Amino acid sequence: MSEVKLNIDGNKGFFHIDIDGKQEAKMTYVFAGEKQIIIDHTEVNPGNEGKGLGKQMVKKAVEYARENNIKIIPLCPFAKSVFDKVPEFRDVL
């Protein structure tokens, strides 16, 4: 399993997974106030589909939300589908 990293830049940021020094997956978000983030886009490079990288990033976002007592608004269709399929992540919605 690859490590999911977080980059924060002011009121926005992204989660990403690097494999062999190359960014292979990225999920962007923006803050909506101080206590909510909006996940707006998830992207996985060709050849990495079906490896669970997107779900790993959503899981990391959920962990981040729990640790920082914030809520997630999943506007990205992929992220929304993960929340729909994984009931244990819904406490941060």
Rank of each mutant, 00 (worst) to 15 (best):
E3S: 08
L6R: 03
D9F: 02
G10C: 07
N11Q: 11
F14G: 00
F14N: 00
F14M: 00
F15Y: 01
I17K: 00
D18M: 03
D18Y: 00
G21R: 04
E24V: 10
K26H: 02
K26L: 04
M27W: 02
T28W: 01
Y29N: 03
V30A: 08
F31Q: 01
E34T: 08
Q36L: 11
D40F: 13
H41T: 13
T42W: 09
V44D: 04
V44Q: 06
V44N: 05
G47M: 07
E49N: 10
G50C: 10
K51G: 06
L53W: 14
K55C: 11
K55T: 13
Q56T: 04
K59S: 14
K59D: 10
K60D: 02
K60C: 03
V62P: 02
Y64P: 06
Y64Q: 06
A65K: 02
N68C: 14
N68A: 13
N68Q: 12
N69T: 06
I70L: 01
K71V: 04
K71A: 13
I72P: 01
I73P: 07
K80V: 15
V82W: 07
F83T: 09
P87F: 00
E88P: 14
F89H: 03
F89G: 04
F89V: 06
V92D: 12
L93P: 14
